[in-house]
């Protein structure tokens, strides 16, 4: 198996007056091209796990490797470099930069990666076309786009730099069924075409149905890890 993510004995304890164990010894290997969900009830630790995978948070104990690099040993700046070069994020509430147009939001991810200006101009148009955003919408700012359109831009931003892993935290939570299914179609296609690894933190059955692998967390522990036939 070509492991893109390797998680070893991951613990996370939040200390806020009393200790809350969000993760208790999680071990997980994720292969390149996986299209998987991390599910579980509220408080099971799925968002914490995703945050640590994305270098947004640090574990109390344990190690995480992404493409062989130990994320848990990196400095803040190294983590920023890791996020800009190897990871893509899709958040529940779209989270585009409001002062940039749809195209500029996508281009911004390329600027951070140091992509050459010519490619920076071409790629966003291409990827926004792939996610199905009409040309006339591309020069609009986020507040002039619908929720579904904003989430398409967020996906385009996450994948434009061809990251090793796309982390999506409840990406369909704020979308109606039509938009949610369209978004899932899109991510499924990108997964197949580009072999991009998608990791969803979700309990949305619409996402669960499409995923090839399901990891279930409960009280910070992996209770099941199943692959769809």
């Amino acid at each position: 198996m070509d492991k893109v993510v390797e998680i070893q004995n991951l613990h996370k304890v939040y200390r806020d007056g009393f200790d809350v164990h969000a993760l208790r010894g999680v071990d997980l290997d994720i292969a390149r091209g996986d299209f998987m969900t991390i599910a579980g009830p509220s408080g099971s630790g799925k968002t914490t796990l995703l945050n640590i995978l994305g270098g947004l948070d640090r574990p109390t104990e344990g190690r995480v490797f992404i493409e062989g690099q130990e994320v848990t040993a990196m400095s803040r700046s190294e983590l920023a470099d890791l996020r800009r070069r190897r990871l893509g994020f899709v958040f529940q509430s779209f989270n585009l930069i409001p002062v940039l147009t749809a195209r500029e939001n996508v281009e911004f991810a390329l600027i951070l990666r140091g992509v050459e200006p010519n490619r920076r101009r071409e790629l966003p148009q291409k990827v926004l076309g792939q996610v199905g955003l009409d040309e006339c919408m591309r020069e609009r700012r986020p507040f002039d786009l619908s929720g579904g359109q904003q989430q398409r831009v967020a996906v385009a931003r996450a994948i434009v730099g061809e990251p090793a892993v796309v982390l999506a935290d409840e990406p369909t939570a704020n979308l109606d069924t039509e938009n949610a299914l369209a978004l899932l179609d899109l991510m499924e296609r990108l997964n197949e075409e580009r072999q991009a690894t998608f990791i969803f933190s979700t309990h949305d059955p619409r996402v669960m149905e499409r995923a090839k692998r399901h990891v279930m967390l409960r009280d910070g522990e992996v209770v099941s890890d199943e692959r769809r036939a």
């Binding site: 700046s77 920023a80 800009r84 931003r157």
Partner: peptide
């Protein structure tokens, strides 16, 4: 979000 995209603290 900007930090998640890879903007450094500085």
């Amino acid at each position: 979000i900007m930090m998640a995209l890879g903007l450094r603290p500085g």
